[in-house]
Design a protein around this nucleic acid. Sequence first.
DNA 1: CACGATTAAATCGTACACGATACAAATACG
DNA 2: CGTATTTGTATCGTGTACGATTTAATCGTG
Lengths: 155, 155
Amino acid sequence: MPNAKDDKKPDDVLNLGNFLCFAVYSANHAFNRVYKPLLDRLGLTYPQYLAMVLLWGEDNQTVGGLGEKLFLESSTLTPLLKRLEALGLVKRSRDLADERQVRVQLTDQGRALREKAAEVPQCILEASGLEMGEAKRLLAEITALRNTLDRTGRG
Amino acid sequence: MPNAKDDKKPDDVLNLGNFLCFAVYSANHAFNRVYKPLLDRLGLTYPQYLAMVLLWGEDNQTVGGLGEKLFLESSTLTPLLKRLEALGLVKRSRDLADERQVRVQLTDQGRALREKAAEVPQCILEASGLEMGEAKRLLAEITALRNTLDRTGRG
DNA sequence: CACGATTAAATCGTACACGATACAAATACG
DNA sequence: CGTATTTGTATCGTGTACGATTTAATCGTG
């Protein structure tokens, strides 16, 4: 009788369906597709929406501060924020005390968009098919996974 | 004493840390960063690696077949596969029976790369900090979530 | 058999996403 | 003080990713 630890076929190891990374990768794409029609009505892309959520929570953040929370580099954020500025949702200006930093402020239009975006989270939760409790548990597990991976990826 | 269901501050709803989508989004980026140094040694990007995994499992697939498994459009896959072809890892050729389809075949070099890539999944599992059992459970939950989202995103 | 409809890839335009690099402002330190 | 180093953004090049469109091949129906 084969050992329970060794009786996997070699195919199992390289079957994409068994890749946790691929589950995450494809779930991310699936979220994107669900968000798309909702965000189209706001004129935002998904990463732009995430940046706006942060700014709605705390205005006048620096590029670096936003990048740290979003796990994004300035090479990604700078053009994204410029697009938000071109849309008239934010204003970017050098910090007077430290001119290396750029601060991002919501415009009136940017603040107003918050109302129109209010229903989005509920729509997403429904699309996930999860109860609030399940969603929170899964959220905690995936966040913990991300933090572990991130320590490896940087340490 | 406030009702347990209603005593959340409005901020809770728009706190990025409570977004399941953001957990998935950032976990995906974190996986990418862990994979990068491993895949650099193979000369592959992460999506290219996923495509190769599928081809190692079943050679001679069509572009559409790969796209269905990877949840990617031909507009994404075509250039990706052209890069794999330029690397000498695959060959692309029209299906003789149905010339609309393009079939992707591994070259000897592409097959050989499988050996060098063999240790990758184990490295990733270790980086995730999860036991095999935990990883499998999480995999199943995230896959189920993706499938639910996907039904909404398309239906 | 013909011809409109469908299908499979490819192409194009826009928007992430990152590493490498550049550059200016701020800090450290002799 | 004045220069070396560090820090915060921005820029550039490469590679996804998708929707809209195009093109060519196949299929369906008359």
